[in-house]
Simulated scan of single mutants.
Amino acid sequence: MMKPLSVGIIGTGFGRTVHAPIFQMHPGFHVKSIASVHRQRTEDRTWNGIPYYRNWRDMLDREQLDLVSIVSAPGHHYEMAMLALQSGYHVLTEKPLGMNTEQTLQMLRESERLDRQAFVNFQWRGAPIRQRIKHILKGKELGDIQHIKYNGSFSGYSVLTESYRGWEARSENGGGFLFAVGSHMVDSLMWWMGEEITEVYGDMRTQIPSYHGDAGIEIRDADDAFTFTGRLNGGTSLVVDVFFPGIHGRGWTLEIYGTKGTLIMRNDQNLECSFGGAFESIDIEPFQPPANLEAPAVHYYNGFYQMIDGIYHSLTGNTTRIDLPTFADGHKTQAVLDAVRLSSETRSRINIDYGSMP
């Protein structure tokens, strides 16, 4: 029987609707408390049966926790993670790890100094289809990888033109799709290949720069589309592209071209390979969510449950079943994101500096 570890969650949006219910389904975790990112004016002392704090600092001060899950806008990650680590807790932080590599390197060094385990929620590593891609690449089934295309197009025009985006519209708060989905893409690429990205040339765009609603004008400077080309250590070339404000998008497509074969993944559901002939489907054993799990948590169960299961086994000293993304991985991803932003601003190719990592 698993000994439950106590979890405190910071964030009553995604933290309450996704992290909390999936943590509650894992026999190794007990969601002990949840706290607001901002000081909400409410007299409630519980939230869906979970003890609730209006101030996240109070939760860190008063609770005895094993793990703190930080589910806030990226602009808050540094302060929250540093205080949680200094309070003696292990930490899981939403992606991206921070706002820039200066922050993420300090966070990584602090976790090492305090001997705390620290993870970044690149949960899609745990999805069975992505684990299968990792297995294929590690086994050199495609030969030497020459080129990778990874793109996503979405039907987001009405969302951007008919509603406010809040902090997600502001780059100063960590908004934008490079941070939101590009962070996952960068982490997956480096994890799949077992290599670092060495250089990028980026272009970030804000296609819908404002919204006029009943509450006034929202001015946006965060990207809703981005493209970058790059290269990995071993010479593999990359093209990464995301376009959110489409009228009708096509979803996700990953194409990996090797000297022996080609792999295509569509929407994290269908996987095909060709070794010179026709493309053939590869069966993936599904990891089905429980029938009683509701949206939006149901959409994240596939990867997030595997992620926290790995964290449990890591914290209890057992062998993990997946490659857990740590603060070191989060820092490396941040270095690539920073380089894409700098490249877009300067219209130049940027060599990536990962700094002096512990």
Rank of each mutant, 00 (worst) to 15 (best):
residue 111 S to L: 06
residue 109 R to V: 12
residue 266 R to I: 10
residue 142 L to W: 09
residue 284 I to E: 09
residue 216 G to K: 00
residue 128 P to F: 12
residue 99 M to Y: 03
residue 185 M to L: 14
residue 152 G to I: 02
residue 318 N to P: 06
residue 287 F to W: 13
residue 347 R to G: 14
residue 156 G to E: 01
residue 179 F to N: 04
residue 132 R to W: 07
residue 130 R to H: 14
residue 100 N to A: 06
residue 231 R to I: 12
residue 285 E to R: 10
residue 312 Y to G: 01
residue 141 E to N: 13
residue 48 N to S: 10
residue 321 R to M: 14
residue 318 N to K: 14
residue 203 D to I: 03
residue 226 F to N: 04
residue 271 L to A: 09
residue 270 N to P: 04
residue 22 I to R: 00
residue 249 G to K: 08
residue 167 W to E: 15
residue 195 E to D: 09
residue 176 G to E: 15
residue 17 T to K: 10
residue 70 I to E: 02
residue 351 N to V: 07
residue 23 F to V: 08
residue 33 S to N: 02
residue 209 P to L: 15
residue 239 V to A: 02
residue 48 N to T: 05
residue 160 L to F: 00
residue 187 D to M: 02
residue 331 H to K: 12
residue 83 L to S: 13
residue 218 E to V: 03
residue 293 L to S: 13
residue 288 Q to C: 13
residue 252 W to P: 02
residue 81 A to I: 00
residue 210 S to K: 05
residue 337 L to I: 14
residue 347 R to H: 07
residue 172 E to H: 04
residue 133 I to E: 01
residue 134 K to V: 03
residue 300 Y to M: 09
residue 158 S to P: 08
residue 346 T to G: 11
residue 263 L to V: 06
residue 15 G to H: 02
residue 3 K to C: 05
residue 4 P to F: 02
residue 126 G to H: 04
residue 240 V to M: 01
residue 50 I to N: 05
residue 60 L to C: 08
residue 180 A to T: 13
residue 51 P to E: 15
residue 327 F to Y: 15
residue 45 R to V: 12
residue 85 L to H: 07
residue 220 R to A: 01
residue 207 Q to S: 09
residue 100 N to W: 04
residue 286 P to A: 11
residue 146 Q to D: 14
residue 107 M to T: 05
residue 238 L to R: 00
residue 55 N to E: 15
residue 205 R to S: 11
residue 234 G to D: 12
residue 263 L to N: 01
residue 330 G to M: 00
residue 288 Q to S: 15
residue 277 G to W: 01
residue 316 T to W: 08
residue 164 Y to M: 12
residue 337 L to K: 06
residue 108 L to K: 07
residue 144 D to L: 15
residue 58 D to F: 06
residue 183 S to Y: 03
residue 65 L to T: 07
residue 67 L to Y: 05
residue 152 G to M: 08
residue 18 V to C: 05
residue 184 H to S: 09
residue 171 S to H: 05
residue 283 D to T: 07
residue 86 Q to M: 14
residue 165 R to N: 13
residue 311 I to F: 04
residue 349 R to Q: 13
residue 306 Q to I: 07
residue 26 H to K: 00
residue 128 P to V: 11
residue 253 T to A: 05
residue 320 T to K: 00
residue 354 Y to C: 04
residue 252 W to L: 03
residue 151 N to V: 01
residue 117 Q to I: 12
residue 168 E to V: 10
residue 181 V to K: 05
residue 39 R to K: 11
residue 144 D to K: 15
residue 358 P to D: 13
residue 172 E to T: 03
